[in-house]
Amino acid sequence: MRKYREIAKTYLKTQLAWRADVIFNMVFTVGRILFAFLLWRVIFAQKETVAGFTFHGMLSYYIISSFFTQLEMSHGISEEIAAEIRNGIFSKYIVIPVNVEGYFAAMELGVVLFYLFFDFAAAFIWIFLFGIEFAIIEDGLIIACALVMVLLGLFFMVQLNFFLGILTFKYEEISTFLMIKNNLAALVTGSIVPLALFPDTVVSFMRFLPFYYVTYLPSMLLTGRCADEAARGLAVLACWCVILQAAIGIAWRRYAKNYDGVGI
């Protein structure tokens, strides 16, 4: 476990080298909030509530979901793995005495821990700047459930991106697919609009998918909605993590032997 802690610590320190990135990362979190503010300001001028949300309830949802979305930086994992396999430099992970997936999970942990504080600060600034009457639940159990779900969701996304990354062993060029995945993920995780706006049948279907629980449900739980889904959400997400871990094991055993360390 110590070696993974060291990896996380190293990546946490590495982030300090790109200080401008940290500031820009903070500033660009405003994009989603600004989108929500301008769009829903116009809509709520004509209506009191939309899909059960008030104006400030909606903006609180966006503040929380944008905070979680910003923390979810694992898409870099699949891009990095794909590029390194293609360039023949993936060997550096294979020759060190660590589990490669564990290495990337620890790396992600280090990066997330670093950005946690800054994203938190950014969320506070936007609440203040946009004059949002921030609504958050006070029930400790629900908050704990939401936080565990977020951690599980972040781990699931690391697994997913690791899985997609190692598919490069087999398919060689997956960058187009990764970009499409990013576009679709923005929709199904509810980071552009709350999934509650979609028809009931669509939402019911999405409940079977893991993406529903990555940012959408935790954000809804923290804004005081969908409390009855919390326990089921944790169970579904845990099942998906187990399924994906099995898929990673199979894909690694089957495809990693294709890697010859000289690039494609």
């Binding site: 769009l39 116009v42 809509i43 004509q46 209506k47 939309v50 899909a51 060029e173 960058s175 187009t176 970009m179 499409i180 576009n183 679709l184 923005a186 929709l187 552009i192 609009v193 706006l197 979609f198 028809p199």
Partner: peptide, 30 residues
Amino acid sequence: GFFGPFLVDGSLFVVQLMIFSAVYANVERI
């Protein structure tokens, strides 16, 4: 990679259409 840009940007605009369909299912006008 010939159709890559089409597939990436195509998916982006399909997502936009789905999002605004969802919004307009709840409101009449923006």
